[in-house]
Design a protein around this nucleic acid. Sequence first.
DNA 1: ACTAGTTGACTGATCGATCAGTCAGTGCTA
DNA 2: TAGCACTGACTGATCGATCAGTCAACTAGT
Lengths: 214, 214
Amino acid sequence: MPAVKNQSTSPNGLALEKILSAAEVEFSEKGFDGAGMKALALRAGVSQSLLHYHFGSKDKLYEAVIRERSALINEERLSLLAQIDLSEENAADQIVQALVAPALGPAGGGRAYARIFAGLIAGNARDQALVKEFYDPTAQKFIEAIEIALGGVDRVVAAQVYQFALGVLASVISRDGRIERLMGDASEPLKDNALIAQLTQFVVGGARSIAQQN
Amino acid sequence: MPAVKNQSTSPNGLALEKILSAAEVEFSEKGFDGAGMKALALRAGVSQSLLHYHFGSKDKLYEAVIRERSALINEERLSLLAQIDLSEENAADQIVQALVAPALGPAGGGRAYARIFAGLIAGNARDQALVKEFYDPTAQKFIEAIEIALGGVDRVVAAQVYQFALGVLASVISRDGRIERLMGDASEPLKDNALIAQLTQFVVGGARSIAQQN
DNA sequence: ACTAGTTGACTGATCGATCAGTCAGTGCTA
DNA sequence: TAGCACTGACTGATCGATCAGTCAACTAGT
């Protein structure tokens, strides 16, 4: 059992990547407990044994999926965050977009992110541990930026705003057709950039509303 | 198999209620797939067979849990909503509180609600069907109220605001200790009423920000 | 008032299916 | 021939569900 090895390098056409992407879909659709190693292997087009050969256990495979996706998202988030001039007028808007866009964009793998959200909200212990390890460091950076962009608000307020913003993101990340249902007949929901713009408007508006009364 | 029968009446010390409350806890902690009928029966202090005797299947039992809890929450929400004068200045604040407070309060059974959120965000088909049946009608009423309270905004905007508000609620409903972690050392998170107040401030601020630019 | 018949709540045993995980062995490459 | 990727056959455990059957409570007939 070579454990995980082969992190992301290699020019190979190995089965590792097939497994990882199949696992991401499977876990996203069924959740950790709902997903089965047999079905997962079938989707990846490899034997079930190979999953254990490469990753050792179901838990490890799940962790590998989260690790891989979080690395992509965090990289893009921090890259966008670094380009922001926090003294600018609309710094807060840029911060929110840096937080939100990577999760919704092509590199985002919204499905895996949705899974993490689901696990968190449900209070699942496994996902909590993964979030702490893979997402907390980046979250800290964003909270510090929010402190400044909002005019030097308290850290408690900034953390609260960050939490709220994630909640709004979570509400958008699952495209389940409910919003269309609730809007009724002829209306169409916002798409992509327009949705991100409105989301940002909402979060920044809410944040400023909180900030100015504290 | 008497199916569900005994909806809520009866002065009995029957096992039905023990099963339902045990199921609510079990499903909340482990999710639908993670929860086991054996463990659930053990927690309720009855035989595993009795679960099938009363509810027929695991799916039906899950549905019964959601139905019971959603009835309580919807009742309280609609009751609070009916008391609001939509022409008042702070009608929007009252609407948000009417939406949020029942889910966080004692009658709310925040755990079960968190589960529903989790399923929705994860895109689970089963939970989507339940939400459509048990939560959509109340949601429609709230969206109509938001339309008016925000000064006659478009229905699309009102629905979007409702969705955002639910997301913020979801971010708060799971007390998993992350917010404390992100705040750092000495700080303490908001509790109960103060939290609801800040949540409301955020949502209404965000909603107004969206409304006035459309 | 006693009993036979009926019902409903509930249980222990057990079902086939499926679960994650193991292992000996095969083929390919260096 | 040594090492690596990979597979098929397999295991014990656990899953949700079904079964026949027990037991107390209630009703009806005499």
